[in-house]
Simulated scan of single mutants.
Amino acid sequence: MDRGRLTYAIGAAVLLSGCGMLASCKVLTVEEDRAIRARQGGALDAPGYVAGMWDDKALPAFRAAAVPLDTLASAIAQDVDRAGGTFGRRAGEGSAWTFVLEGAGRVVSVDSTSRRGQVMVALPNWPSGQSARFQIGPVVEGSAVRDALPFVTFDDFADQLVFADVGRALTARALAGVRPVAAGLRPGQTVRFVGIANIRYANAPLIVTPISLKVGRAG
């Protein structure tokens, strides 16, 4: 066999072998991958991890980082990056600033029946002049609760999937404590809150994931 035919034969054999290998491969869904990692002992029990540190570490961290609403509103109106450097934190350069804020506002509307439940709250002197959207879930945007905790970082976990699981578990734990209160709110009531928001610029719509909600007077 001459060299050209030999090269062709080898190439064909490699191609057929590769096709056989591809045919035997399976593209895994996220759920299947997570199940495999669990069987191999590489998965983290995210809800258990969160339950173990929520009361002793997470809640004290939120309380320590909480900024009065009036103080934060004034600082953000002047310079959001300076406000972030003083009162907030962010995952990296170019990311939104994460703030823990506490204060009171007037309930405008409540939707506790949809998957993306929300309470619209009018806040005094907020830079955008819009009502804040308090997410009560169960489906929410973003991972503000995780972002607010300096001791929960990507490098501490096996991969992005595990890190995302932890973020969802933290949000679920926060919302479990506020959904019953939120469902009972009525327009016109004053609600006191501690919540977390990711903010990029002063006039951005304010989307808050609440940690605490209580009916009460603003003063």
Rank of each mutant, 00 (worst) to 15 (best):
G4I: 14
G4R: 13
R5I: 08
R5P: 09
L6D: 14
A9V: 09
I10F: 05
A13C: 15
L15Q: 03
S17F: 11
G18Q: 06
G20Y: 04
M21C: 12
M21Y: 06
L22W: 02
C25N: 04
C25T: 04
K26M: 07
L28W: 05
L28A: 08
L28G: 09
V30G: 13
V30A: 15
R37W: 12
A38P: 00
G41V: 03
G41R: 04
G42N: 15
A43C: 01
L44A: 11
A46V: 07
A46K: 01
G48R: 03
G48D: 11
Y49V: 03
M53Q: 06
W54M: 10
D56L: 10
D56Q: 14
K57R: 15
A58H: 05
A58P: 06
L59F: 11
L59C: 06
F62L: 07
F62W: 02
R63S: 06
A64P: 14
A65S: 14
D70N: 04
L72Q: 02
L72P: 02
I76C: 04
A77H: 03
D79V: 11
V80P: 10
D81T: 07
A83C: 13
G84M: 11
T86Y: 14
F87N: 14
F87P: 07
R90T: 09
A91P: 05
G92S: 13
E93R: 15
G94L: 11
T98K: 07
T98F: 02
T98E: 04
V100Y: 10
V100K: 10
E102I: 08
E102P: 09
G103L: 09
A104N: 03
G105E: 06
V107P: 11
D111K: 00
T113F: 12
M120Y: 15
V121M: 00
P124W: 05
N125P: 09
P127K: 09
P127F: 07
G129S: 01
Q130E: 06
Q130I: 03
A132L: 00
A132P: 02
G137M: 03
V140N: 03
V140P: 02
V140G: 04
E141Y: 12
G142L: 02
S143V: 10
V145F: 06
D147G: 08
A148K: 08
A148D: 05
P150M: 03
V152T: 10
T153P: 13
D155G: 15
D155Y: 02
Q160E: 06
L161H: 04
L161P: 04
L161R: 08
L161Q: 14
A164W: 04
V166D: 05
G167P: 01
L170A: 05
L170C: 01
T171D: 12
T171P: 10
T171H: 14
A172F: 09
R173G: 11
A174F: 01
P180Y: 00
P180C: 09
V181S: 02
G188H: 00
T190M: 00
T190K: 12
F193I: 01
F193M: 02
F193H: 05
V194S: 03
A197R: 01
N198L: 15
A202R: 00
A202P: 10
V208S: 12
V208I: 15
V208F: 10
T209S: 12
L213Y: 08
K214P: 08
V215L: 11
G216D: 07
G216P: 06
R217P: 07
